[in-house]
């Protein structure tokens, strides 16, 4: 059983050292990381790593050249942002008008939680579950129903 388990583990763990087996340049991992954050301008919602368009291939080549030149991720992003604007970033910037995109979901979650708490409080708030209140309410309701 242990042998089988070890075998299965070894099989599933194979991709872990696949990168080393093909001898990938560590710079290439950075190229991929930067490229997945950049939108292909001639495609619909596709990053330049996945896209096969000529423009995306050329942009990927530019990323590679700049990584080799030793430019930082932020510098490379800024290079494309100066040319294509915020559109080229697949995750919108968290400053300026782009901040709204990040803030709205947070506000919605807080608002939703608040609403849920309010409803729960109203349904089974303190004091309302006591037999007295229950009885009073029922009486009041009964009066209303039977005038």
């Amino acid at each position: 059983m242990r042998l089988v388990l070890a075998f299965v583990l070894a099989l599933t763990a194979a991709p872990l050292w696949a990168g080393r087996l093909v001898g990938e340049d560590p710079a290439e991992a950075r190229v991929r990381a930067v490229a997945t954050g950049l939108r292909c301008p001639v495609c619909q919602s596709e990053n330049i790593l996945d896209s096969h368009s000529g423009t995306a291939r050329e942009m990927l080549e530019l990323v590679r050249e700049q990584v080799i030149e030793g430019r930082s991720d932020a510098q490379i992003m800024a290079f494309f942002r100066a040319r294509y604007g915020d559109y080229v970033l697949l995750s919108p910037p968290s400053t300026g008008p782009g901040a709204v995109i990040w803030l709205v979901p947070v506000l919605l979650v807080i608002g939703g939680a608040g609403l849920a708490l309010l409803l729960v409080y109203r349904l089974r708030g303190p004091g309302k579950d006591t037999p007295e209140t229950h009885a009073q309410l029922t009486e009041a309701r009964l009066e209303e129903l039977e005038p």
Binding site: P41, V42, G54, T55, E58, M59, L62, R83, Y84
Partner: peptide, 13 residues
């Protein structure tokens, strides 16, 4: 030929 200047101008179509 490779569209490098196009990228400098932010050309997309």
């Amino acid at each position: 030929p490779r569209g490098r200047l196009g990228i400098d101008f932010g050309v997309y179509g």
